[in-house]
Design a protein around this nucleic acid. Structure first.
Lengths: 201, 201
DNA sequence: TGCGCAATCTATAGAACTATAGAAAACTAG
DNA sequence: CTAGTTTTCTATAGTTCTATAGATTGCGCA
């Protein structure tokens, strides 16, 4: 498959995926036309079909592109030998900075993937589940090592962290001048210590 | 304006708004057609324009409908004389149960409001800002009364709570058999106490 | 019963959108 | 420069969508 394609083809295809990501992120999947994507990329509407079989195919590729290195980063965080707190910081940092780096593809994955038919979503589900399970594992280890209290439900915790990151991701996308460093610090502090008054204070 | 309309008209208009909410929630604003909405409601496509000036107008009404009693509930929570913890529980319960009650309109507000032009969003912004400010106020009082540590940034905290509730709202919508009571308890526990090991344990 | 208004329907204009087919242009190698 | 290949373009068939206009049906009241 990939052997049959030119260097330029692969390059332009990646460009097409990035363009689709940018347009989908701004207007939503159904709100975007193939003409919008082509124009963003600087080619004509019909030419886009040299790179995508269909608009749906474009969405599939964008979602995969958005998840892939995101999951890879989680792999390396999860398998490192950092403390629970360090891993939590790394996870949140990785997740949130992805939004600032203009990885529109991740936003598209979050907001639009459900418009894909089941059949085209299995790979995406695997990636998402893998990501979540690694995060659950980090919590399980945190409990073992005594850094996290044992009453924490790891599945709940993983979902909560992911949900919070996505919520802030959307937010910082609309507030480009926000201080990410401060935000990450606040998130970690809240998640680890909670709102309540500390005893020795 | 409203005086010129029949009882039946008002009733059907509410029905139209609810139908639009259901359809928009499932397919997204751009993914829904006016025919979809009309069919859901049991009338013909053209008849919908007896109740909405335009599709965009329908979205505006749905978003307003979704926010309104939501904000009202927050008013009464915020002005009650409960403790911080009680108010937090009430807020999260109100927010999360709204999703289970099939208030699709709230999901539509969250996911689709940005497709409205600025001019039609000012009222919505006011409502959203009002909601958030009341939540910030709850945190400020929590700090005053010593229930919340003073290092918490109230604006950050309010956003974090709203973001987490919305994330779980989306989730429970796809998992109808989930135990909301348990979920709410977990959320409150996490937000107040955090992940970390407690001293006396 | 029949008049008048309210509510819904049918039909359609006009625009936009996806996907394809085949022509044209750009590029590569000999 | 030429022939073959890759990439892009033009044109369009076939659908679908929004919004409107005018006909039709249903309803309450004199």
């Amino acid at each position: 498959m990939s052997g049959t394609h030119t260097e330029k083809y692969e390059q332009q295809r990646r460009e097409a995926i990035r363009s689709a990501a940018a347009v989908f992120a701004e207007k939503g999947y159904h709100g975007s036309s193939t003409r919008d994507i082509a124009e963003y990329m600087g080619i004509k509407q019909g030419s886009l079909y040299y790179y995508f079989k269909s608009k749906e195919d474009a969405l599939t590729e964008v979602c995969l592109y958005g998840m892939q290195d995101y999951v890879e980063r989680m792999n390396s965080i999860s398998s490192s030998d950092q403390t629970f707190r360090e891993k939590l910081v790394a996870t949140i940092t990785s997740h949130i900075t992805k939004y600032r780096e203009k990885n529109e593809a991740l936003r598209v994955y979050n907001a639009e993937r459900l418009y894909l038919p089941e059949s085209k979503r299995t790979r995406l589900k695997e990636l998402g589940t893998g990501y979540r399970q690694q995060l659950e594992q980090i919590f399980a280890e945190g409990i073992e090592k005594g850094e996290v209290r044992s009453s924490i439900d790891c599945q709940f915790a993983a979902h909560a962290v992911i949900g919070m990151c996505n919520a802030w991701g959307e937010f910082i996308d609309r507030h480009p001048d926000m201080d990410l460093f401060q935000l990450i610090e606040n998130c970690v502090d809240l998640l680890i210590n909670g709102f309540k008054q500390t005893e020795n204070n």
